[in-house]
């Protein structure tokens, strides 16, 4: 079971119209690959975040399909074009059905 899952996002506080801003996200998650064996010799069941999405004012920025080969504490960096002030909404989908969300405001002048 995923514990202490904390999302962290970094987005510039303000930008100019049409600027391409860099977005960085990190979420603490053990990303158990399903390949490792525990001390009892049994395979530890897979438990990963399998999808990550980022939207800006309801428009998709990026939608990532994630497999077990992504490292512990999945980190993603990507670019977004901002034409107006608004909110970035970040969503992570866990194998166990949990959904983690975070958001960030940006002021566009």
């Amino acid at each position: 079971m995923a514990e202490n899952v904390t999302p962290r996002v970094r987005v510039p506080r303000d930008a100019t119209v049409g600027e391409v801003v860099s977005v960085r996200t990190l979420i603490s998650h053990q990303m158990e690959s399903g390949q490792r064996r525990g001390s009892d010799g049994e395979l530890i069941p897979r438990s990963i975040i399998n999808r990550f999405t980022c939207e800006f004012n309801g428009t998709s920025v990026v939608d990532v399909t994630i497999e077990p080969s992504v490292s512990t504490n999945p980190y993603f960096q990507f670019d977004a074009t901002v034409n107006e002030s608004g909110t970035f909404a970040f969503t992570w989908y866990d194998d166990d059905g949990s959904v983690y969300t975070d958001s960030a405001e940006i002021t566009v002048a």
């Binding site: 391409v20 992504v70 670019d79 977004a80």
Partner: peptide, 14 residues
């Protein structure tokens, strides 16, 4: 990575 209409570039790091 599936880039949406609001993506600033088709680039990503992980």
């Amino acid at each position: 990575f599936n880039f949406g209409p609001a993506a600033g570039s088709s680039a990503a790091s992980t």
